[in-house]
Measured scan of single mutants.
Amino acid sequence: MEVRTIKVFTTVDNINLHTQVVDMSMTYGQQFGPTYLDGADVTKIKPHNSHEGKTFYVLPNDDTLRVEAFEYYHTTDPSFLGRYMSALNHTKKWKYPQVNGLTSIKWADNNCYLATALLTLQQIELKFNPPALQDAYYRARAGEAANFCALILAYCNKTVGELGDVRETMSYLFQHANLDSCKRVLNVVCKTCGQQQTTLKGVEAVMYMGTLSYEQFKKGVQIPCTCGKQATKYLVQQESPFVMMSAPPAQYELKHGTFTCASEYTGNYQCGHYKHITSKETLYCIDGALLTKSSEYKGPITDVFYKENSYTTTIK
């Protein structure tokens, strides 16, 4: 009895394709271990004539594949690729409408935090270190965002349907971005203890939790000093293409032309909904596939993004 075979390709990165001759009487799992086709788990399936010449994702289970996976995804987590594939199996079914010149995501599976993050990423200057993220990001900007969303979920250790947080998501993504040249110098002034300067680099240099107003941050924000008295913390120097200011959701007025974009969060910790506000020729609110415009805006804002380049204080 002759062994019926077909020729397929296996890959971990969709760049390096490895030619395989597979036995049609055995499952993919018996031949390769966990195997995925377009995100779908085909591990328990036997090869079919229609699979001839198709590319299958496999887990990096030998040295060659491990090197290829690390170079593309910059992670050695053995569960990463499987999590990416199972997320992709959902995100490829989502709709990605162009809204006001940006790629958004039609609401499904509690994905409003991903839509808000995706919209924000198209408006701030950011370059990702893992080629996987950078490639998928370019495709997302062009309207094909399924891979990018699935990668975000995998890097953030999230599953489809789980509630997510924009600030946490951005923080994970910033860790995989090139923020080497970003720098922030802060000064804390206390009447009792004097003053202390701190220099922050990388992710810490672009994120701040405690106030939404970048102007206020430049002037000074009140913080408790270690001595128990009130101290003032203010920005001395900022070198970065953008800054992200966050605070627990509270009524906040966004003035046209003073910011790049913002995240609105309605609801409580267990259950809520994100919308995205962007400042173009007027203010726009993007909620999944829905767009509304207004000249002014007041609502429960939790993150505001500002364009920056270089700032030095005039406070002496």
Rank of each mutant, 00 (worst) to 15 (best):
I6P: 07
D13V: 01
N14W: 09
N14I: 12
I15Y: 15
N16A: 10
Q20K: 14
Q20S: 13
V21K: 13
S25Y: 11
G29P: 08
Q31G: 09
G33E: 02
T35Q: 07
V42N: 07
K46A: 11
K54M: 11
T55N: 13
F56T: 05
V58K: 06
L59S: 13
T64A: 10
R66W: 09
Y73A: 03
S79D: 12
L81T: 07
M85C: 07
S86G: 09
A87P: 03
K93D: 12
K93P: 07
W94C: 03
N111V: 03
L114S: 02
Q122D: 06
I124D: 01
I124E: 06
L126D: 00
L126A: 04
L126M: 05
K127D: 05
A132L: 03
A132D: 02
L133C: 11
D135Y: 09
A136F: 06
A136Y: 08
A136T: 06
E144V: 05
A150S: 02
I152T: 10
A154Y: 02
A154H: 03
V160L: 07
V166R: 06
V166G: 02
E168M: 14
L173K: 04
V189A: 10
K191S: 14
T192N: 12
G194S: 05
Q196L: 09
T198D: 07
L200D: 08
G202M: 02
E204W: 07
V206L: 02
V206I: 09
M207T: 11
Y208E: 07
Y208H: 14
M209K: 04
Y214K: 01
E215N: 06
E215Y: 02
V221Q: 03
V221T: 05
T226L: 09
Y234D: 00
S240Q: 05
P241L: 04
P241E: 09
S246M: 00
G257Q: 04
S263C: 13
E264A: 15
Y265W: 06
G272Y: 05
Y274K: 00
S279P: 06
S279F: 03
C285K: 10
A289W: 07
L291W: 15
T292C: 08
K293P: 10
S295W: 10
Y297G: 02
K298M: 11
K298S: 14
P300I: 15
K307D: 07
N309C: 13
T312F: 11
K316W: 15
